[in-house]
């Protein structure tokens, strides 16, 4: 898998490049801001671009802006945004109208190579990836009436993984249950939350996220 890294901190870029190289992932370029990232992507046509959410010049949401541009101009390039913030608003902005692979991960995940590589592979495969901490926030928020009140413990677990962007089979693996069972749970969940049954998995993730964040 070929990736490029965009982050304004050299320390992090280099560390990440080494870590990914160790894991057998090809890092074919690094950029320090959104503008050079776009040039790099155009030149290298990587499978996934790893993008820091905050880069020069304004240090606000350049990563998200760059992600949107990449998704439009190079639809085959997946974008994994690394963010410092557990903010549903950012994540929703990223995944709400993306059809291809993209992800919103907390930057903390770079300290766990396995998790990071897993996310990269899923993005490369065209899936949506949402950080579990963010999903946690959405699932644990207190609401009254609680729309998740009718869900069983198991259904909540399935919902969390759905929101993180996992496909049924991946959910089944993680929960040590059969894929069929997961499918049943998913059907129940969608019914209870009054969400449409959509086979396209990215749309399912979007719907769940939007529903959860109210």
């Amino acid at each position: 898998m070929r990736t490029v890294i965009a982050d304004d901190t050299a320390l992090l870029r280099q560390g990440l490049a080494r870590l990914l190289a160790e894991a057998g992932i090809d890092v074919c370029g690094e950029a320090g801001d959104g503008e050079s990232l776009l040039q790099l992507v155009e030149r290298e046509q990587p499978d996934v671009a790893i993008v820091d959410i905050r880069m020069p010049p304004t240090h606000s949401d350049e990563g998200l802006v760059a992600a949107a541009v990449i998704r439009t101009r190079f639809p085959h390039v997946g974008v994994l945004v690394l963010s410092q913030y557990v903010e549903p608003a950012y994540a929703l902005r990223l995944v709400s109208d993306q059809q291809g692979g993209c992800g919103y991960l907390l930057k903390d995940r770079v300290t766990n190579a396995a998790e990071l590589v897993d996310a990269l592979e899923r993005v490369a495969a065209g899936e949506l990836v949402v950080d579990r901490e963010l999903v946690d926030l959405l699932l644990t928020q207190r609401r009254d009436p609680d729309p998740l009140g009718d869900l069983t413990e198991r259904e909540r677990e399935v919902l969390a993984l759905m929101a993180e962007g996992f496909a049924d089979r991946a959910i089944a693996e993680r929960l040590w249950i059969a894929t069929n069972t997961v499918e049943t749970h998913v059907r129940h969940i969608l019914h209870k939350l009054a969400l449409p049954c959509d086979d396209a998995k990215n749309r399912r993730v979007q719907a769940v996220l939007i529903h959860l964040s109210g």
């Binding site: 320390l11 992090l12 560390g15 990440l16 080494r18 870590l19 160790e22 930057k107 903390d108 770079v110 300290t111 766990n112 190579a113």
Partner: peptide
């Protein structure tokens, strides 16, 4: 984060 990556 650098520290975390170094540990990895």
């Amino acid at each position: 984060l650098g520290l975390g990556m170094a540990l990895q």
